[in-house]
Nucleic acid binder design. Structure first.
Lengths: 141, 141
DNA sequence: GCATTATATTAAGGCTACCTTATTAAGTGG
DNA sequence: CCACTTAATAAGGTAGCCTTAATATAATGC
């Protein structure tokens, strides 16, 4: 707290994340202005064979209701559709439309590009080191 | 997007930030359960001589209205108070109470402790390297 | 085969952390 | 002293979640 001389790594992690996210999200907006950052959780945890809402919510660590709204949006945008689950009539499978699949591939390209740019900025050895340190913090801090 | 084999640094930055934030916020809750993460912006940008709401909002990059609510809360909790600004009768200066000052010092301790633990986990050379890389990303990405 | 319990989804409403668009009050320049 | 700006606040809105409850269907035990 209170602006301190050399910024804390805690604060730097946040700012670096924001910076990188902004660039990613600019790319996403260029693809489709309707897609918001929160929708990325859906693409991130989707499965090509189709997935149930509950499982999608669980993977994204949010409630089925919250995930349901995100899926509603993406369905409305034409990226997903819900089909009956043949194995359980209570459930429906969420699957990609062709447009959804194309959007996913575009999303990958945007992120891969950002990762490549970061590796160029830092040098690939240090980028790999950054990857390892962050992984370590997540696992063991 | 879509769970990829070695996670992207973009995602790792976010998760590492969340992990560290959780630890910081646990410490803050132990101090005062009423204080929420959003209040940290106030402590972070306060000035001991007193500061106007508008300037505080500007430093924290949010609207005066949003900052006003955070300051209202902290005033209610007894950490801040608003006194007339002798140089401009439209304005009021936000100043720390003694409790607010003590809370700020406790907050510093919590964060410094977290930073120390991270340095121990990674080793201080690598921790310094992490600091430099994050700073680089923020500045030049 | 039927009641009980569990699971999948959706509906309704709430909360936090912001924002935008007025208002009100008090300064300031010509 | 009058137009204009600035400081703060009020009112109401939005995104991104959450909790609690309702509804439909399934699975299980007797």
């Amino acid at each position: 707290m209170a602006a301190t001389h050399p910024p804390h790594v805690h604060a730097l992690l946040y700012e670096a994340y924001l910076r990188v996210s902004d660039v990613v999200f600019e790319g996403v907006k260029a693809m489709d202005v309707r897609v918001r950052p929160s929708h990325s959780a859906v693409f991130f945890h989707m499965e090509h064979e189709g997935i149930r809402l509950g499982r999608l919510a669980e993977k994204a660590q949010m409630t089925a209701q919250a995930m349901g709204e995100l899926v509603d949006d993406l369905e409305e945008f034409g990226y997903l559709c819900r089909v009956p689950d043949p194995t359980d009539r209570r459930a429906r499978l969420i699957v990609f439309t062709e447009e959804g699949d194309a959007a996913l591939r575009t999303g990958y390209k945007i992120i891969d590009d950002v990762e490549r740019r970061m590796a160029e900025l830092l040098g690939s050895d240090r980028f790999a080191e950054l990857h390892r340190m962050l992984t370590r913090i997540i696992a063991d801090f």
